[in-house]
Design a protein around this nucleic acid. Structure first.
Lengths: 114, 114
DNA sequence: TCTATTCATCGTCTTATGGCGATATGTTTA
DNA sequence: TAAACATATCGCCATAAGACGATGAATAGA
């Protein structure tokens, strides 16, 4: 049973991370906890949209939420999530540099042709 | 420009990983390169579906593809992708154990109540 | 050359996702 | 208690994504 839960959670976490707005939200929250009214002006999205995104990250257990008076404060639950993102970036960078390398080789062979 | 590319690729990679079938495909391919006709019987999905999933992983630069006669062989391009998945699992496990911990505490307090 | 095999792609359907405005809910403040 | 504020949620639309069967294209073998 735990096995199934882990693979479900795995997909849930990865799905939550696979959206540009949510990645920006995480980056924004890397500076520490913020209430929604602070977050909103930093994003060019409607309040309902941001709220929904925050909730998706919360449901995936990536964000923590605490209600403080009439405000709701969100923060990163486990900074390990940034390690994941960094690894993805690292993979992406490897791909890009390989592409650039291929580009150079291609260019060189095109020049040699003339 | 590279900046935008990295964040695009980041989302592309994460999206590619956020599907249970594709994660299973990666796991299956962790044993080494396989042609599609080997992969198919291992999955209860139509040929077209598997082909599409493989293509998504290929487009995200996670899989490599080589045509060999009438076969197409897929393999993991960079094993670092498994590091990413392991980190996600680790995050998921932390969440589950925290949940279990909370469950115990709740149970204990319920018992104490009686 | 005809046939079978292997795989990608297309068309279609259904469901999921992201976006928004409007509305509901709870909380301070006047 | 009324008004203002802060958020979540609802209902809707448009687009994306996953699934399948059917078709297409390439290769291998008879």
């Amino acid at each position: 049973m735990t096995q199934k839960s882990v693979s479900d959670l795995r997909v849930k976490i990865l799905s939550a991370l696979s959206d540009p707005t949510r990645l920006e939200l995480l980056e924004y929250l890397s500076g520490g906890e913020r209430c929604v009214c602070e977050i909103l002006p930093a994003f060019q999205r409607s309040q309902s949209t941001i709220s929904k995104h925050l909730n998706i990250l919360y449901e995936a257990d990536i964000l923590e939420r605490k209600v403080d008076g009439k405000r709701t404060v969100y923060c990163i639950k486990d900074p390990q999530v940034f390690e994941i993102i960094r690894m993805v970036d690292s993979l992406a960078l490897t791909q890009i540099s390989q592409l650039a390398e291929a580009g150079k080789i291609l260019e060189k062979s095109l020049n040699n042709r003339s």
